[in-house]
């Protein structure tokens, strides 16, 4: 049923992405692809993967933006995936009922057995979060790794979305954003987490944490001249260099 659930117990599972920390390594996107090509919406088909013009389905993509100019300008790495919106137009436009929002936790999913591949949901999503699988003829999107977060075969510490568990910088957090006292909600409150494109009215559940104010000191006039670079002790011979290092220890 593509009408939105009228009742739920207030649980809203979602991600909090820290743009201050993200280093743009794309590990989340790669691990997402790796897990999900065998997961709930598998496969994430690749076309022409080794050719000149590879194409394929990804749930998570990392963009890099420049914001501002000159000394105050920043480079911000920006992972983007489905935001599991509270008012998801992608769900209500679906003519078949294949797209739905789960009543129990708000996760937005596609039923690959009933999707007709009309692509209207991807038109309705302002965030470009849905990608059509040309080989399968159905729409695919982030599943919030429902096959990990509820998976009793995984040790409890691994019951996280693949992107969250893999992020080497801990820029991604997962939790219940419907509970104002959850760790993620507290983090959002503390850091001023925000919604992307609120003017679209989708009420995204996922939140983004803004980059912190610049703390670059090199922009200030140095108080003292930089330390003199120590004179080179290169003797021109590997053996003598080794002796030198040993003796100066």
């Amino acid at each position: 049923m593509t009408s939105l659930p009228t009742s739920n117990d207030g649980r809203k599972l979602g991600l909090v992405i820290d743009l201050d920390i993200c280093v743009g390594c794309h590990a989340c996107a790669v691990n997402c692809k790796e897990w999900n090509t065998g997961g709930h919406s598998a496969p994430l088909t690749d076309e022409n993967p080794y050719g000149a013009d590879p194409q394929g389905v990804w749930f998570n993509r990392v963009h890099s933006f420049e914001a501002g100019d000159g000394d105050s300008g920043r480079t911000v790495h920006f992972p983007r995936s489905c935001l599991h919106c509270d008012e998801p137009a992608c769900v209500t436009v679906c003519p078949t009922g294949a797209s739905y929002k789960r009543e129990s936790d708000g996760i937005v999913l596609v039923n690959a057995d009933t999707c007709i591949g009309c692509k209207l949901c991807s038109w309705a999503c302002p965030y470009g979060a849905r990608e059509y699988d040309y080989a399968d003829g159905v729409m695919k999107k982030c599943t919030m790794c429902i096959d990990r977060i509820e998976n009793q075969h995984l040790p409890p510490e691994d019951r996280l979305p693949a992107c969250v568990s893999t992020c080497p910088a801990s820029a991604r957090h997962f939790g219940d954003l419907g509970d104002p006292n959850s760790d993620v909600s507290l983090l959002v409150a503390e850091r001023g987490g925000y919604d992307l494109m609120p003017e679209m009215g989708m009420q995204p559940v996922n939140k983004y944490l803004p980059p912190r104010a610049s703390t670059r000191h090199d922009l200030e006039t140095p108080a003292s001249p930089p330390e003199a670079i120590p004179a080179s002790t290169d003797t021109g011979s590997d053996f003598l260099n080794w002796v030198d290092r040993m003796l100066t220890r």
């Binding site: 963009h63 420049e66 911000v76």
Partner: peptide, 17 residues
């Protein structure tokens, strides 16, 4: 508004994913 980075300044795409 799409990135929420307007507080820093004008936003431009540096690298596509």
């Amino acid at each position: 508004s799409a990135t929420g980075l307007g507080v820093i300044g004008k936003v431009r795409l540096l690298e596509s994913p």
